[in-house]
Nucleic acid binder design. Structure first.
Lengths: 220, 220
DNA sequence: AAAATAGTGTCTTTCAGACAATATTTA
DNA sequence: TAAATATTGTCTGAAAGACACTATTTT
């Protein structure tokens, strides 16, 4: 029996759409932006066996809110907790899922390569620039997430969440270049970071082959 | 019986959250940004009689997708079709509605004062800057919508959808000033509009008390 | 010493803000 | 003619891009 029927209202009840939460998990693998995919495991779900953006059905008894459902999707499908998780867009229509009217609240998450899980039977990374078509409308969801990340990269410190705990300015610059795919001028890059005030000098220096540079961390 | 049960799958079914679509309708009334509110009419719904952001429950038999549901909300609660309708954010939790776990996909819409309906028993405009608390989490939804509109006003031609069919540059500038609440320099304003390339000179001139100015329309 | 990387100087262009001057109307 | 509004000129400072130069370390 449906939960709301317990309230004992007189109003006619309409059939409710399926509500999913899908999470586009991104990280830097081999110097380029990758997305984490998981296989459809349930034989009774559409696209059984296909690799898709990890998602879960919202559970009224388990999830306090949508973000909690997104965290659960990340934890159960990729085995991790992400420091950056943000809502992207909600897709909903009568045709996007063969099971009937469904809506999916899409989130995107960024993790540092150091905590990115290795490929396995139930998880794998794929380069966002050479993805073949994904089931459902997941190709569109992925495209929107990638666009959002690239866009925010141009005016926000978003890529800090793709960086390890500590890093050199040149390493952070390389991350921006890998996300955007274009060269970043060292001078201007340093000025922008300075202006945003999102970096904190750890007090340490480190060399990556030549003159040692300052080691930074993300400002809390 | 639940729609998905027709599929005849073996998988256990979970109770589904309530899925709503709410629309923050905005316009310029008496020189300031206003939001359209509608009263809760059903005696068996929470906050019966209170004024809220108009919304509908997603109907699997009526709405092709989420945006169609948003258009239906606008049409049934405000009696209009909006030229500008965009998804804002999705709110969902176990506590936001007393009927149980619910999610609301919030949209916002902008209409020109010329098509804004007059106040009535079932609809009224209220200034966004002097709203008292609204039911549910509607205060938060409204705040987010207002922030979004003000933010987009600084870098996009969004306020064109608050303008009448044709207008003088000074009138459009006044609209920007009413939305943002701050003076816009005529020179810079004209330059920005020019740079965005969103205006089209109709070829006509019109006076509003002094020297006649060029009449523009939104570029298609 | 040579190679590699870090860090800084600075020139130029672009753009936004401020303010002012000029141009045409209506009342 | 006076008042009102439209339109354009231009000065200034901030920010972005491009490029080069200096500094300090490793090999």
């Amino acid at each position: 029996m449906r939960e709301s029927a317990r309230i004992g209202d007189m109003k006619k009840e309409y059939p409710r759409p399926l509500l999913m939460v899908d999470v586009v998990l991104m990280s830097l693998v081999q110097g380029s932006l990758h997305v984490g995919l998981a296989p459809r495991l349930s034989p009774d779900e559409p696209f059984h066996g296909s690799w898709t953006i990890p998602g879960v059905q919202v559970r009224t008894d388990e999830d306090l809110d949508l973000e909690a459902a997104a965290r659960r999707a990340l934890l159960t499908k990729a085995g991790l907790t992400s420091p950056y998780l943000e809502q992207l867009y909600t897709f909903g229509s009568s045709v996007r899922d063969s099971r009937g009217w469904s809506a999916s609240v899409a989130y995107y998450a960024l993790v540092s390569p150091s905590v990115a899980p290795a490929d396995s039977e139930v998880f794998r990374w794929e380069s966002v620039d050479q993805i073949r078509a994904l089931p459902f409308d997941h190709t569109k969801i992925l495209q929107l997430a990638v666009d959002r990340v690239r866009s925010k990269t141009t005016y926000s410190p978003l890529p800090l969440y793709l960086a390890p705990e500590t890093f050199l300015m040149s390493e952070l610059r390389a991350i921006y270049e890998q996300v955007l795919g274009v060269h970043q001028d060292p001078r201007g890059f340093e000025r922008r970071m300075e202006a945003m005030g999102v970096l904190e000098f750890t007090g340490e220096m480190r060399s990556s082959g030549g003159k040692p540079g300052r080691v930074y961390r993300r400002a809390s």
